[in-house]
C-alpha cells in the first residue's frame, strides 16, 4: 500500500527533509563500540583491572611487613603452590566437585523457579522472604545439624553449598518475577497474551540482566559455602577448607595463603564459566 496520493506535496517534502536529518548519535557510538570488539568494554576491562590490582596491593602489604610474617607475598605463595601442588590439588578437587554439584543443583532450581515465577508471579513476596530467612541462617551451625541426617563427605558439602547459594538465587527469582511482568499489563493485555507466551517473548529477556547478576553472585557464595562446610566438619578428610584449618592451627602461613589463592582462582574460574554460559544471552539483550 502506498502513501495516500491526495497528501499535499508540502507534507511529503517536509517529511523527506526531516528524514534527511543527521542519523542519531547513538548509532555512531554503537558502531564505535563494535569496532573496539566485544572484549574491550568497560564491563569487562574494569573487573579485570581490579583483579590485577589485588596482587599488587597484596605484594605491597606483604612488603611493608605491617602484619609480621602472617602475610605472605604473592611470589612466595606461588612458590608454595608449586612445591605443594600435589597436596593442594588433591584437596581442591573435592571442594571443586562439591561446588560444581551445588552450582548445577542451583541452576536447575533457577530454571524451575523461572517457570514458577512466570506462571505465578505472586510468589515474589514469598521468595523475597525466603531469601531473608536463608540469609540469616548461620551455615556453620547448619553443617553439624545436617551431618545428623546426611553422611559426611562430598554430598554434605554440596548441600551446604546449595544452601549458601540459595540466598542470591531466591533474591534473583524474586527480582525476575517483578521485572518479567513489566509491560504485561499494557502490551500483553492489548494482545491478550498468556503468561507463558509473554515470558517466552518478553519476560525472560527482560530478566536476563538480573539473572546474570544473580548467577555471578551465587557462584562465589557457593564456593564460600563449600569451604565453610569443610571448616565445620562436613568433609571426611580432604578439602580446601580442611587444609586451611590445618594450616591455621599448625601455623603455616605460606600454605594458608596458597590455599586461599587456589580458592580465589577456583572461584574466578567458576565466575568466568558463568560469564561464558551467560554471554550469548547478555550479548543479545545488551
Amino acid at each position: 500500500m502506498n502513501a495516500v496520493s491526495s497528501a499535499p506535496i508540502e507534507l511529503e517534502a517536509e517529511l523527506e527533509a526531516a528524514r534527511r536529518v543527521t542519523p542519531p548519535t547513538a548509532a555512531t557510538a554503537t558502531s564505535t563500540a563494535r569496532r573496539r570488539g566485544p572484549w574491550l568494554t568497560p564491563q569487562l576491562t574494569l573487573p579485570v583491572l581490579a583483579i590485577c590490582l589485588v596482587p599488587a596491593v597484596w605484594a605491597f602489604i606483604a612488603e611493608t611487613g605491617m602484619f609480621g610474617n602472617a602475610v605472605v607475598g604473592p611470589v612466595e605463595t606461588a612458590k608454595e603452590i608449586h612445591s605443594h601442588w600435589d597436596v593442594l590439588w588433591l584437596n581442591a578437587k573435592p571442594t571443586l566437585e562439591a561446588t560444581l554439584i551445588g552450582v548445577a543443583v542451583l541452576l536447575v532450581i533457577i530454571a524451575g523457579g523461572a517457570v514458577v515465577v512466570a506462571l505465578v508471579p505472586r510468589v515474589t513476596a514469598g521468595l523475597a522472604a525466603l531469601s531473608i530467612v536463608l540469609g540469616t541462617l548461620p551455615l556453620i551451625v547448619l553443617t553439624p545439624m545436617l551431618s545428623l541426617v546426611t553422611e559426611r563427605g562430598r554430598n554434605l558439602v554440596a548441600e551446604v553449598c546449595v544452601l549458601a547459594g540459595l540466598v542470591p538465587v531466591a533474591a534473583t527469582l524474586s527480582g525476575m518475577a517483578r521485572i518479567g511482568e513489566r509491560g504485561r499489563e499494557d502490551l500483553g493485555a492489548v494482545y491478550g497474551t498468556s503468561r507463558l507466551r509473554w515470558w517466552r517473548f518478553v519476560g525472560f529477556w527482560q530478566t536476563v540482566p538480573i539473572l546474570d547478576i544473580g548467577i555471578r553472585a551465587m557462584i562465589p557464595s557457593c564456593f564460600v559455602g563449600s569451604i565453610v562446610a569443610e571448616w565445620s566438619g562436613a568433609s571426611t578428610s580432604r578439602g580446601l577448607g580442611q587444609v586451611m584449618t590445618n594450616a591455621m592451627f599448625s601455623y603455616q602461613p605460606p600454605l594458608l595463603w596458597a590455599t586461599l589463592t587456589i580458592a580465589a582462582i577456583g572461584s574466578l574460574g567458576l565466575l568466568a564459566l558463568a560469564t561464558l554460559i551467560m554471554y550469548p544471552l547478555t550479548r543479545r539483550v545488551r
Binding site: 500500500m1 502506498n2 502513501a3 495516500v4 511529503e12 517536509e14 517529511l15 526531516a18
Partner: peptide, 14 residues
C-alpha cells in the same frame, strides 16, 4: 512536529 505529519500520513494510508 515531524511525527505529527508522519501520523497524519500513516492514518491516511491505513
Amino acid at each position: 512536529s515531524e511525527l505529527n505529519l508522519e501520523l497524519l500520513r500513516i492514518l491516511s494510508a491505513t
